[in-house]
Design a protein around this nucleic acid. Structure first.
Lengths: 340, 340
DNA sequence: TTGTACGCGTTATCAA
DNA sequence: TTGATAACGCGTACAA
């Protein structure tokens, strides 16, 4: 027997024969209400199926218990498992999460900004690598925020992510220790901070191995499958072939493998390829991709923990938490082949 | 010069020297307010940077302009492009969308249900194939809802999706016309309606080609990569090999290709494989996967249009809109090989 | 221990 | 054409 309109606190109060104030107290500070009253209230809640109206509550309190997650591309294979870490940690502390998909569209950014400033979300997680577009224009102050997956360029927003330099260094060292001396780095970038750091790791490893700069091959790329294919074509045009490809991420590696296959090469015999990220597809490539695994769920968990801490007591200093990634050895790396 | 607290309608009213009622009117029914007054109000809005507080608005109106999208798995490659269709159509009509990730967890379902009944979202899009868990328990009435991607079993919720029967039939006919007579169907299901329909399409095509039932091979599977690999193993154990694999979806096809590759077969020479969905990775497999393409963005667009129509005038009858998918020919299908 | 009454920011009704 | 004011559902001083 349920009404069409959802039960309000008043319905409960009437049924329990108390005032709405008592109902509210019975819910939020149970020890401040007599045991017998509390029981009557709880019964009434059960009967009516009462659920506190989150909107009214947030309006009154000036804050909600929702966290907004802003992502430019939900299809990114790195996104979903990071999200799980974020969600689980939030739930464990009584917060819910909502996902906003910006598609890198400034207008959408603005829209979600309004959502925030209406108080419909209390905290913000950024996958975007930059503040929401229109943020400065709108002149709004951002709520407690943490960035994930890509640090926010030129800002004091805290960041939780993988240690790109160390991970990339591991990758390069793996190639080096397999005997490679001509290693190409595919996917260099001037704008993406994370990719820049991976390039640093590459250089660090090659420095340590005393590989002369003129024996390093660096190709730019935006980190997409297409950019990987393109890089292969560029290399073949220049006719400066490496024995191994170190890719800025797995998407690039997939493109490289693809391009190499298309040219009829037999991997990993002819060339070695290593990636970064360990996306789900990496296992199903042929050869299966040797790569650096991002601890995505752990990153999500830590990021949310940091955000909730900020929510509790607003600190000023920016924090950067870097998690160490692991090398995952599969089939795409072997010793170098001497080509004639 | 901006305040810390966001401007309210009262700030605007004070600055424009009118009442808050007039401000509200100037915004929503501009023709009902004198031109000069309207201009003063607009100026004041610009100066204060006023943005209407969505929460207060929704509380008063009893409805918001947000649509909640419930998905069990955001990582599903079918999800993101469907989402884009949904988002664009919603935006075009002044609605915003929020994504809820259930991970098939009943508790999470309940949580989002509360979100809905608080009026924080007005409409619902279901990717889940079932009503939110706990729906019956909570005894809540669902808002206007439409299902996408997977029809909701045993319910009168409208559905927009691909024509599975017709698509599967196209796939089977493609195999047939390439000369195959022993075609295995991988991924049969008793519970998933969409997969059942694909199986129907397979049977229809084979009926028409007068392939006797004893020459049909049907393997169950849950539509995952792993289930595809498993199916291959089963077939080899039984020693009843087909010349072609028709897979219930691309994930299964990837597993099948993988299993076949692992056994050292040369595709598509030794076996043909066809998928269903056309996920982004399909192009990058070797061989590139011939498959049936779901018009995902169009599905999203149509689904949202249907939902918004329901929002405008609540109809009773259930509708099912089926979009026709296309055959995408790539490299994974050739004529059958005679095996000794 | 409990109840009364105000305010959160809007929109809508009713007078003026 | 405009303004006062009542609701929307809730939390919490303050009073009892």
């Amino acid at each position: 027997m349920q009404n069409s309109a959802p039960a309000t606190i008043e319905d409960v109060a009437r049924l329990a024969e108390v005032s709405i104030a008592t109902v509210s107290r019975a819910i939020h500070t149970p020890d401040k209400v007599a045991k017998s009253t509390r029981q009557r209230v709880n019964q009434a809640i059960a009967i009516t199926g009462y659920t506190t109206n989150a909107m009214a509550r947030s309006l009154r309190m000036g804050r909600s218990n929702m966290i907004l997650i802003l992502a430019p591309d939900i299809g990114d294979p790195n996104f979903s498992s990071t999200l799980i870490g974020l969600e689980n940690e939030a739930r464990a502390h009584g917060y819910g999460v909502l996902i906003g998909h910006t598609q890198n569209d400034p207008e959408r950014g603005l829209e979600y900004l309004k959502f925030l400033s209406s108080g419909q979300a209390t905290g913000l997680v950024l996958f975007t690598g930059h503040e929401p577009f229109g943020h400065q224009v709108a002149g709004t102050r951002l709520p407690p925020t943490v960035a994930v997956f890509e640090p926010v360029f030129g800002s004091k927003i805290s960041y939780v992510g993988v240690d790109d330099v160390a991970g990339a260094r591991k990758a390069a060292e793996h190639l080096l220790s397999a005997g490679h001396r001509r290693i190409a780095f595919i996917g260099d970038s001037r704008t993406r901070l994370g990719h820049k750091r991976r390039r640093q790791g590459y250089d660090l490893a090659l420095d340590a191995a005393r590989i002369a700069p003129e024996n390093r091959i660096v190709i730019e790329g935006e980190g997409t499958i297409e950019s990987g294919r393109l890089a292969v074509e560029q290399l073949f045009m220049r006719d400066t072939l490496p024995t191994a490809f170190m890719c800025v991420n797995d998407a690039t590696a997939i493109g490289v493998i693809n391009g190499l296959n298309a040219r009829g090469y037999d991997l990993p015999k002819d060339f070695s390829v290593i990636g970064f990220d360990d996306v789900p597809q990496a296992t199903y490539l042929s050869p299966a991709l040797t790569t650096i695994r991002q601890p995505r769920t752990a990153i999500g968990k830590q990021a949310m923990a940091l955000l909730l801490a900020q929510l509790a007591e607003r600190p000023t200093e920016r924090r950067e938490i870097l998690l160490m990634p692991d090398l995952i050895v599969r089939g795409s790396v072997t010793g170098p082949t001497v080509r004639r």
